[in-house]
Amino acid sequence: MGAILEAKDLHLAFKGVKALTGVSFQVQPGEFFAVIGPNGAGKTTLLNVLSGVYEPERGEVFFLGQSLRGKSPQERARMGLGRTFQGLEIFRGMSVLENVKLGAELALPTYPLALPRAEREWRLRAWAEEVLDYLHLSPFRHAPAGMLPYGLQKRVEVARALAGRPKLLLLDEPMAGLSLEEKQDLARFLLDAREEWGVTLLWVEHDLRAVLELSDRVLVLSYGEVLYYGPPEGVRQDPKVAEAYLGQA
């Protein structure tokens, strides 16, 4: 089987500022793929291009062998491309359960009209509860998502994305602002999700230690260019990466 996601020579500039210049990489099925880089390196821009919020000026993205050109974010979501955001982008006014149910709609096919609406709703509920239980969110199911502490809100967002049973999940700094313990929990959840549900993970993260410990392969970006692309062991040895992070060779 080929790559689940393939980016070919992506270019994007905002008013002359080059956010991405010739970024190419492949993500293999079942992989834990990390994208790192200093601030302003274009990591979030890259995720936005992959999930369809931005359209690249040049280059193309292939997902499951299909080109994503011209596909809207919701079409990509239905194809199995999940996404979480850097800031908290959960539905604050809805309960945790409703957040997860909304995500779970993606897991149930839309078309079989033969399935009565009520039955659909029960299946959604059952699946949403499974995800909630899995992420240890069950006690908060009826709490308004916006009222929860920060760490839990982050987890609600991951739950929302995971409930849609994505084939590939794009995570934008899922660990930012979490305590060490919460980070460890989240790492466990993500690894388990990969194991049990076969989710391929692509994450952007600043916590280098976590990235190097967990990821199978790493892509290092700086000013929109690929500095390094390979196994995590090589990241620390690479002189270009050291220069980008420390400012000198």
């Binding site: 999930s51 974010p73 919701q74 955001f85 982008e89 006014g93 995500g103 709609e105 849609g164």
Partner: peptide, 11 residues
Amino acid sequence: DNDLSARVAGV
């Protein structure tokens, strides 16, 4: 609540 997130969730 959040139209960006809604789109990414398939709405």
